[in-house]
Design a protein around this nucleic acid. Sequence first.
DNA 1: AACAACGGTTCAATATATGAACCGACGATA
DNA 2: TATCGTCGGTTCATATATTGAACCGTTGTT
Lengths: 289, 289
Amino acid sequence: MLTDLVSNFFCKPPKVNFLMSSTTKTLELLSHFSVARPEIGLTQFCRLALRDKATTYRHLQSLETAGFIEQNPMTKAYRLGPALLQLAETREATVPRKSAALPPLHALADATGETSHVAVISGTTVYGLVSCESPQHGIRAIMDLDTFPLHATASGLCALAFGPAQLLDVACENLHGFTAATPPDRATLVDLIASIRQSGFGQADRTYEDEVKGVSAPIFDQTGNLAGTVAVACVASRFTPELERAIKRNLITASRAISRNWGGTIPASIEAAWANSTTLHMNELDTAS
Amino acid sequence: MLTDLVSNFFCKPPKVNFLMSSTTKTLELLSHFSVARPEIGLTQFCRLALRDKATTYRHLQSLETAGFIEQNPMTKAYRLGPALLQLAETREATVPRKSAALPPLHALADATGETSHVAVISGTTVYGLVSCESPQHGIRAIMDLDTFPLHATASGLCALAFGPAQLLDVACENLHGFTAATPPDRATLVDLIASIRQSGFGQADRTYEDEVKGVSAPIFDQTGNLAGTVAVACVASRFTPELERAIKRNLITASRAISRNWGGTIPASIEAAWANSTTLHMNELDTAS
DNA sequence: AACAACGGTTCAATATATGAACCGACGATA
DNA sequence: TATCGTCGGTTCATATATTGAACCGTTGTT
């Protein structure tokens, strides 16, 4: 039949494989699953992954033998598999991040009345760990991300400012513009990072979504390195100086608490930056009023 | 240096790769993590996986870029990564197995006073989903398995009896003997399966661990196929006929409830087998007494 | 200072992944 | 009921990505 020619045409890759191992390509398939797209058929996978059918099929088989996906016997479509539950359980049992972050996060969301979340830095990626929506407002900033763009979110910028230096290069390789305010180039990013280092808070002013402002603080673990971030995402129209002060005050509390639960402490330099920037902030207000 | 020759010697594979994709080999590395072994170094991985250092290193890198593992910055050892948490969350959000199984499972453990667990069948593997230890007894059967051997556990045998036919071949490919009572060959297994089909209950009498007897029942989902098993693992010395009756009665309840929660129902043939075998059981008792 | 163990890297050899074409089944359409 | 499009899955020659022996630099031990 000729029809496969057509369907293959739409699946063909842009003929450039950026030094990717076949395993990496295979594991990338998993990222196409989400709550909104829980089952994916073979052909649909081809389109999503921009690979041909035979390759995609074999990749899916590998994932299936590992228990990472399974086939719905009715629809023949693939969905996430049960092996993930066990691995996740082992991870959380041995490196309890989520459970240790939840209580301070809830307190933060309650105190600020805004959507709050915690992310973990692993390698050069910022993964969303858990988010907590305060029921206080009808309109809330919704952050349903799997990974946070380094250059466009408060958490990402916080990682750039306080994480390993190589992150900046990674960020600059993908400066996707989400809004008009997204940092467009390395220079802008470097300036932003400098001011974040000074204040001790990550800030993202409508850089990822219009009408959403984010403020974040770093989290450290027993290694002494940056291990994650805690952030508040706030509908921009509600973002008053008073709210900002409250958010920062509570972020400090949350960051200290989660860091302690993760086995780390806040470095003196950041404590100093916080002390400095929050009093500075007050001075600004005093001058303004 | 000559030392790598030595370390490589101990890592060398038995020179037979059973038609495994590199991805499958890579994902197999993850199975070496457990609560007891949460962090694994490169060299240790080589020994566990029986592969050489370069290959293992590349595999680990693939897993790391996918966020499935991360390196402890202090020890350089690898541990499970944060991406697993998200995938597991998506899986459970879209295919809620665990949360839907928990309430009936707790009821089962409470009613029987024995360790109970639920497993899911995916492909040709029986994955442990959740287990529940009744606090009633000091001595409990502990089932801390990731996957259940098909031929040697009540859950596995239940899968063989009520799952897809191909499972039997898979089971016969690995008839590892755990105890003196482990079914040693296909013929024994076939007999066992036949009696399980008749009674509607999987049974494993010290086939996996000495002093542990297991009884299981099948779980079905909306596809009408076997989707999992619910089982009670019991210290053999406590296993009286009365306890067996109680276990079976409560297994039926649990199996019906979990199947309903998973979107399925118990096939009439199995309901009939249950009715038949439980009354038969009583008759036996009557005759005996 | 010598040694061993570790994490990580190199390069030739080749085992393994790849994709165009193909197949059979299904469902919609007309 | 004949036609078409789409789907999941399979084949095989080709070529590319994986492999492992040997190597390197560092660290900690004796």
